[in-house]
Design a protein around this nucleic acid. Sequence first.
DNA 1: TGCTTTATTTCAAATTTTGAAACAGTTCAT
DNA 2: ATGAACTGTTTCAAAATTTGAAATAAAGCA
Lengths: 206, 206
Amino acid sequence: MHLKPHDGARFLGNGFNGEHRDGARRLEPESTPARAPVSQLDLARMIERASRRFLDYLRLELTKLGVDDISPSQVMVLFTIGSGEIAVRDLLDRGHYVGSNASYNLKQLVESGYLERGASSRDRRLARISLSPKGQLLVERLRLLDETSQFGQGLDIDLDADLQTTHDTLRRLEQWWGDALRYGGILLASCTSYSFIVQDLVSSLT
Amino acid sequence: MHLKPHDGARFLGNGFNGEHRDGARRLEPESTPARAPVSQLDLARMIERASRRFLDYLRLELTKLGVDDISPSQVMVLFTIGSGEIAVRDLLDRGHYVGSNASYNLKQLVESGYLERGASSRDRRLARISLSPKGQLLVERLRLLDETSQFGQGLDIDLDADLQTTHDTLRRLEQWWGDALRYGGILLASCTSYSFIVQDLVSSLT
DNA sequence: TGCTTTATTTCAAATTTTGAAACAGTTCAT
DNA sequence: ATGAACTGTTTCAAAATTTGAAATAAAGCA
């Protein structure tokens, strides 16, 4: 499953990025002796990694369920659709997908029987996508797994709170990045920012 | 930049997944009247979205810097490498990349002059990758942008703490998923879990 | 009716990801 | 030393995904 064989034990010791992380102790809200603040980039890196891991994990679960006609990210599309009918456009918004790409996945999902599609009668441009029974079943099975897996294990305290904070913070980041995107990047600070950069650029070239 | 034209205003109203989210108020640690707990799947979905957004954002920043010979995810590779030399294997561990894929990116990064590579003398299998001056410059420029952009804006309180929590929690999730991966999925609860699922499956088919 | 807009899909090209195999260098037991 | 077994990394071709630019098709409106 595209994990190299020697991926075994050495998992704890990955020193992140050399300069500003030292082993990420297990969340002790107060005891930490002032570690360098986490930046967007750090987080983005974390997000990338977690993302990859999750997809692999999901693929594993699918295999274990004997499901092999759908890809992990297509499963995510199913979850994004949720119960009920939605238009493709809504799906795009919910998941921040690119249209043509979503279309590609949707077609496959319909072909493999996870989705049903019909046109709205009021506006026949609207696609009205919804999970088929097969799709619902898969989603339910995975949700069940999800609920069952208490990955707080013996870990001390309110994981729930942390999950919530994480969720909200990610949303915030997403929002920020989205805003930057549509306003054309680094909002207010841009002027000063760029003058700095030019300085840096110049000095770096000497 | 692969954002559809109508991606403009409707950004606030995307109701997540219908059943258990209502608009994600701006992190008020205490005031929230008990919202449904966030699950792994929810988070994973959030991570996916944020991930996409970030990559788009990064692409934009690159464009603005006039850099067009490197892809956003390749930039992330640069960051993962950080300063100093590392072996490819270490890079794989740090970023959870798949070998052949990393190799592909590394080759391009060397070709486009962002990386330097040499073989270690002790073990000539080891690759010893490091940023070239060009690579360092890019990384610096982006770091600077990153530091400059205060995306806490006027927002109330300790964003830093939240970022930290998010980071740690993501790491935890990543760890969990990774463990599940190498131990073969849902650790302890698997037995009960699966019996439930079979029940579900059966009842769903009647 | 014609023109403009919105929703969605199609298509071909470009990029990325994969798995399997090939390579090359090390180690270790003999 | 010799060769079997192993580790680190790359290559390669096939598969999957992503992209952007049309194409389609249905509304909406002047």
